[in-house]
Design a protein around this nucleic acid. Structure first.
Lengths: 223, 223
DNA sequence: GTGTGTGAAAAATTTCACAGCT
DNA sequence: AGCTGTGAAATTTTTCACACAC
């Protein structure tokens, strides 16, 4: 399934960033037993403009039928393939604070392609305890996890002080994909993919927008 | 503090999205008793290019000194002001599952401008229980929270099925800023600011990048 | 007729490179 | 001399509008 345009590299970053959203919308349609969608419908379900959706999908290849729309199941399978979700990705979560435990239990991770194979903590005192259905392991176990479980992705959910040390140990163990939830900028070698999710950033952007709405107080000074 | 360019509207979206990162880096410098930084240093601490940092900061006004750099404390205060973090933003978190409890306990929220004034749940059976230092309240309490506590921002951490209903109730109660952690697209009136954080999206992007790295198998077919 | 696929235009973002202030 | 501030160039992203396939 997909040996043509889909496996070509060089999708625009902005497109890649939206594919998960399309996939989610398509999965909901599959569950609702919808067989076919138009770009207008799918765009609205995914929260983007129809033109952008069509342009994004056209980057993957021609999976629509003119005058009809897209086959929901086929398009979902195609996007899964492109995103690499056809295979299984062993994930480890480091940091068993509130956030780490919530992430370890988060169904959205396990439900598609991702499998939490271990949870770890930097604090030796937590090692051996149970959390979210796993026994907490020590950082020293990382090389074994990479070797035996094929661990590919590390999720950092530690306090910011230990995030860099954890990243270093993940890299040293051979993990080449890291998702950082700690509010700190990490440095990794160029061959490692590092992305971050900052829980507070979006809240701060909302505050900015709210302030704009309510407080353009010195506005008159401009005219 | 800031009655000039900073309060002018119309900052580029991309700039606004980076301001929280600059503020975080500056706060770390303040804590480290650093008085002044160059754009190169601050850019590196925030993980962006020096040119982009300078362009972003120039949108706020001229807060640097040529040949010297930026005054850390002054710039931090200025960005706080622009983002609206000088005031206090009462926040309510709806949905006391794993994620909701983690968010309610997350120090990154309370430490700057945001104050969790209430946690709520759609499930009446949870109402009255304690979670993350708060007593869980019912959705029916929302109007009172807006009136009495000045509730301004609602955070949705429910399962996707109830997210839209929660959003509707937040809007009905007068909340005009919503941050959605549920993996679903929500519809709100245009006067309401809605942003989302999707915990699984970044993981899926990492999978895409990892697959690209390891599996450009049909590459030779192109030449 | 209908709705996709796409070149071209428009808009937004990022980078460059250097003038200008301290 | 050093580092910011900023026009201009380059790049990326989004929108437009319509040819084309069903």
């Amino acid at each position: 399934m997909s040996t043509e345009a889909a496996s070509r590299r060089g999708l625009p970053d902005a497109t890649v960033a939206r594919l998960p959203g399309y996939l989610r919308a398509l999965t909901a349609l599959v569950d609702a037993r919808v067989a076919s969608v138009s770009s207008d419908e799918l765009a609205s379900a995914a929260g983007v403009s129809p033109a952008m959706l069509r342009k994004d999908l056209s980057q993957l290849g021609s999976y629509g039928v003119r005058g009809v729309g897209y086959d929901v199941a086929h398009l979902a399978a195609e996007i899964s393939e492109v995103l690499g979700l056809a295979r299984d990705w062993p994930v480890a979560i480091v940091g068993m604070g509130n956030l780490g435990r919530a992430l370890a239990a988060y169904r959205g991770f396990s439900t598609r392609g991702f499998r939490v194979v271990a949870v770890l903590d930097y604090d030796e005192r937590l090692v051996g305890l149970r959390a979210a259905g796993h026994t907490v392991r020590a950082m020293a176990d990382l090389p074994a996890l990479v070797r035996d479980e094929g661990l590919a992705i590390g999720v950092i959910a530690t306090p910011p002080e230990s995030a860099q040390a954890v990243a270093d140990q993940l890299v040293a163990a051979g993990v080449r994909s890291i998702l950082n939830f700690a509010p700190s900028v990490l440095t990794v070698p160029p061959e490692v993919d590092l992305r971050k999710v900052d829980l507070a950033t979006e809240l701060q952007i909302l505050a900015f927008l709210a302030q704009q709405r309510s407080g353009p107080d010195t506005e008159a000074m401009l005219s």
